[in-house]
Design a binder for these strands. Structure first.
Lengths: 186, 186
DNA sequence: ACCTCCGGAGTGAACGCTCACTCCGGAGGT
DNA sequence: ACCTCCGGAGTGAGCGTTCACTCCGGAGGT
């Protein structure tokens, strides 16, 4: 366990506690304890608790976006879609805390007040869907409908896995992703 | 505005405030004020705030279940599915507060601790999906996958409408529901 | 090589405030 | 007079935030 700087230490502790107990269930005193710092130290790095939460969101958004990205433009639309969505699921199944946190943030006053943009991880797939619609590969319907058809089932499945202990194997993931493509297709 | 009993008055106020400001953002003093009762009165009807929240959940779950239910067993599986899902969407688009509250409840410590059962409104459609799988009308995959494919996009769409002000018309709803059926089909 | 000084990161007891919850005096019916 | 129901000031626990202080590493004088 290499010695990390305190800022990182605090953000790491915050992710775990927020995911487990929510923003309101995680007092600064607990954050400090878990991060192995004094309470006051938190306020040296973040102007207040809200700022810490927003900062954590921004960091994760970027990190996740980079991990989902797929740089294989030679493959077919379907192939690229399937790969990215599968990556998406696997990432969050292996990083439950990040999913819990992002969900919590996304549907809270924070995101409404500030950067309303959709999570970074969606951006790539949204681009793909737009291009696919242009080419007539997927249905000519509103992007919101396409996004719902693509992400809805995938997020639902991840949620069942994370919040309801659903046993999730590769076969189920494959079936779900394939089926969402069928739903999108023209 | 007919005079309702205080219990109902409190629950009605709670629904609105919880939906708008969340559980933590709705102090009992505000609940009381909005319900037109004293703070103490709340505790005559509910042992504590948590109990109130759980009670509200139970009431809504039942109410919504009854409204979504479809008693037309003569129609085809697909037809019944489409009708129920469309009802589902329309209900929540017209009862945003109920959706906001249910979402909040479902993914909070409350539901994890107590009745873990899925929301009532799912039960009917789950039955339908099971029957349809039995008949070979839909894919022979795990019920969790079927549920994700069915509800995922529908909930995603409603969320976009409620939290992100997505303009939602009948055509978009139809397209989405139709596409989810395609995803389910064998 | 030693000592002195200093800047600023780090700390946590203390503060002010908000909250869920209590409790008792009074209103209103019988 | 009695009983039931209600209200809202009061209470203490717990929260986010502050600030006077500690501590340590390195710069600079000798």
């Amino acid at each position: 366990m290499a010695k990390k700087d305190k800022r990182t230490e605090i953000l790491d502790a915050a992710l775990v506690l927020f995911a487990e107990n929510g923003f309101h269930g995680s007092p600064t005193s607990q954050l400090a304890q878990r991060a192995g710092v004094g309470v006051g130290t938190i306020y040296r790095y973040f102007s207040d608790k809200d700022e810490l939460i927003r900062e954590l969101y921004r960091d994760l958004k970027q990190k996740i976006g980079a991990r989902i990205d797929e740089s294989t433009p030679d493959l077919s639309m379907q192939e690229r879609y399937v790969r990215m969505m599968t990556k998406f699921i696997n990432y969050f199944v292996q990083h439950r805390n990040e999913f819990r946190f992002m969900e919590q943030y996304y549907f809270s006053p924070y995101s409404a007040e500030f950067d309303c943009s959709a999570p970074e991880e969606n951006a790539r797939i949204q681009q793909l869907l737009l291009a696919a619609r242009e080419q007539g590969v997927v249905q000519d319907v509103s992007i919101s409908v396409l996004q719902s058809l693509a992400f809805g089932p995938v997020i639902a499945l991840v949620k069942e896995n994370i919040y309801r202990d659903l046993d999730l194997d590769d076969e189920m993931i494959r079936q779900t992703v394939e089926a969402t493509w069928t739903a999108l297709e023209n």
